[in-house]
Simulated assay, not measured.
Amino acid sequence: MKAMIVRECGPLENLKLEEVPDPLAEPGKVVIDIKACGVNFADSLMVGGTYQVKPPLPFSPGLEVAGYIAEVGPGVEGWQVGDRVQALTNWGGFAEKVAVPAEVLIRIPENMSFEDAASFVVAYGTSHVALDYRARLKAGEWLVVTGAGGGVGLTAVEIGHLMGARVIALAGDDEKLAVARSKGAEFTVNYKHEDVRDRVKEITEGAGANVVYDAVGGDIFRACFRAMAPEGRMMIIGFASGDVPQVPANHLLVKNIELIGFYWGAYKEFKHQVLLDSATDLFRWYAEGKIKPHISKTFPLEQAVEAIRSLKERKSSGKVVVTM
């Protein structure tokens, strides 16, 4: 089979198309004939060797796939060849096939495309678990989403709106903000041209943000932190700006602010049921037509480097997908 392989961590150019042996359907596992793989910021970090999960070399990045079951290993029950599935792989998704434990499989709704399925679980799961389980977002609260045009930020806008929050979307591009409005943002702020703190205060009539969902960090984090309401919850999702902000602990006391770190992948290790419960809700919402991934670009497997670069350099809105 063909796969994009990293033999030495470093720049994205180290990711190259190779011919490698097909995976085996070992006991308890199935082999998926991959049709689409979602691209995530973690893929670029994994290629560079800076992600918290470090696969053994050589490896293929790609952590969320969708396709058909091609083989079923011994001891697997409830699944058969030809079933349409989605799976989280940790790595190995930028390939024509991958073997995964049967327990990580999720059956795809009949009305869901493979591209949508491969764009779904990580981005929507991150926002849903963060906003519902960790931030305890309530209907009517003010929710500020930074990086609102990105793959994860856009799902936070959509889910926040679905949960009844009043969403303020922040981005540095008017086209991305237009997409955020189409997903339910009530207000938008272009932080390249507007003062974030002043605009959030103005929009909320001085009340401030009840929840901030920040995947950017840096100066945007600092501005949002200064625009929070009493008992506000600040969600730290990531640092797309490359600037990890430092927060003086005494500032948390002034308004009784909660600072909440969130890494969705950690729940796979210590509280997997949280992810399963979330996935059940999300796939139901999709089947009901309440949510749908915004896929701005698709790339063939051999152009996976360009796909990752498009995401890393913020040249895309919503999700980027590699197709086989």
Rank of each mutant, 00 (worst) to 15 (best):
G164H: 12
K54C: 05
G217I: 05
V321G: 09
A185C: 00
I203D: 00
Y124G: 06
G147A: 08
V100F: 13
V72Y: 07
N190C: 08
Q52F: 04
P58W: 12
K192G: 03
G232S: 08
E103P: 02
F221Y: 10
M228K: 10
G93R: 07
L252T: 02
S278F: 03
V39I: 13
A227P: 12
D83F: 10
P109R: 10
I291F: 01
L311Q: 08
L154Q: 04
G150A: 03
G184L: 07
A223N: 09
A36V: 01
E13A: 09
R199E: 15
M235D: 02
A135C: 14
E71Y: 03
V189M: 04
R107Y: 00
A3K: 01
S296N: 07
L88Q: 06
G232L: 12
S316N: 15
E115N: 09
G10F: 03
G73K: 09
L143R: 02
N40K: 01
S278N: 04
T89V: 13
G38Y: 10
L63C: 15
E175S: 12
I295T: 09
P23R: 05
S113G: 11
P61N: 09
A36Q: 03
A249H: 13
A215K: 06
K16S: 13
H128I: 04
V216N: 03
V39G: 01
Y263L: 15
A207Y: 05
V211C: 13
I69R: 05
L259Q: 12
W142K: 01
P230R: 08
C224T: 11
A223H: 07
W79P: 02
K290S: 01
P101K: 06
G242D: 09
H193G: 05
L143E: 10
G261L: 09
Y213D: 10
K315S: 11
D22M: 12
G160R: 11
K97Y: 15
S317Y: 15
G217M: 06
A135E: 09
K176I: 06
D281G: 08
V305I: 14
G289V: 07
Q80A: 07
E71A: 13
V30F: 02
I295V: 15
N210C: 08
R233L: 05
G73M: 11
F59T: 01
E313N: 14
Y267D: 08
G265F: 06
G38D: 06
P58L: 14
A304Q: 01
F239G: 08
N250K: 12
Y286I: 14
M1H: 04
P300E: 11
K97I: 01
V322L: 12
I106H: 11
G153Y: 07
G78F: 00
S310W: 13
R166Y: 06
K138I: 06
D195N: 15
D22Y: 14
V98M: 07
E19G: 07
T50M: 09
G62W: 13
